[in-house]
Design a protein around this nucleic acid. Sequence first.
DNA 1: GCTATACCCTAGCGTATTAGTAGAGATTAA
DNA 2: TTAATCTCTACTAATACGCTAGGGTATAGC
Lengths: 142, 142
Amino acid sequence: MISQKAKYALRALVSLAKAGQGKTMVIGEISQQQAIPKKFLEQILLELKRAGFVTSLRGRSGGYCLLRAPEDIRFGEVLRLIDGPVAPLPCLSLIAYRKCDDCSNETNCEVRHVFMRVAMATRQVLDSTSVADALAGTGAEL
Amino acid sequence: MISQKAKYALRALVSLAKAGQGKTMVIGEISQQQAIPKKFLEQILLELKRAGFVTSLRGRSGGYCLLRAPEDIRFGEVLRLIDGPVAPLPCLSLIAYRKCDDCSNETNCEVRHVFMRVAMATRQVLDSTSVADALAGTGAEL
DNA sequence: GCTATACCCTAGCGTATTAGTAGAGATTAA
DNA sequence: TTAATCTCTACTAATACGCTAGGGTATAGC
């Protein structure tokens, strides 16, 4: 299960992409449109900003807008930012590899072999599907 | 990420399958072989027993052994038993569907569409790979 | 029978994570 | 000046995770 926060982040990006590139939305709009608690969304958008997905304008007629093109924002990137590794086991993570304490010889760990295939399958989807694909309902269709 | 407990459960089943069908192992053996805390493993084996994956003999020369054939124990089944739904979103779970609070029209939820594909990809692996496959290093190979 | 060795069962516990809330501050347009 | 906006830090209640503790119950072998 992905976290609620990651889901909110993706929805927020979808909202911004729908608005059109360069168009800004205020937090309140996104929050209402997507039924996301406003103060929580604030934090999420800040994280997305720090990571370079969106940018913001402060003050009276401020708001958020996409910084990167919707075609260039992959679901996998957002998930890794918000939830951390996508991998089902620490010993299979690209961004945060960690040896399993209870695994002596990793190369012939049966469990790892199976989840390696799970990891590849999910990455295949998450790292090839962009926000633009999601809007179009397409993207690396099987 | 799958839980440590689920990983232990799978490893325990792999150990029992390696021992051979009908062969019993005591908790201590499995615990040592797989570096699983013994008391924790007790609980896990008990759950696996209640779910019908293994059976046990009590008393002096007791132990656990597989009840179902290794070919018939899919990774997905074990994961669902120990960790709950395999799906990345509650609204995509087969065993515990729940509508997302923040989702008005599920059928055109962009996020859901993408994760539907993730769900199908992971199920494809988890529900087609058995403990026997894991031991053989094969099983629904791509 | 007795006892040692297994499995069976329930409860609890420390830590971390999740899903937010709260509230003050900084910036800018009108 | 002020009202609307983003920025930042801190806190919190609830839950889950990864165990540990300590009994209880059955059975084989002496």
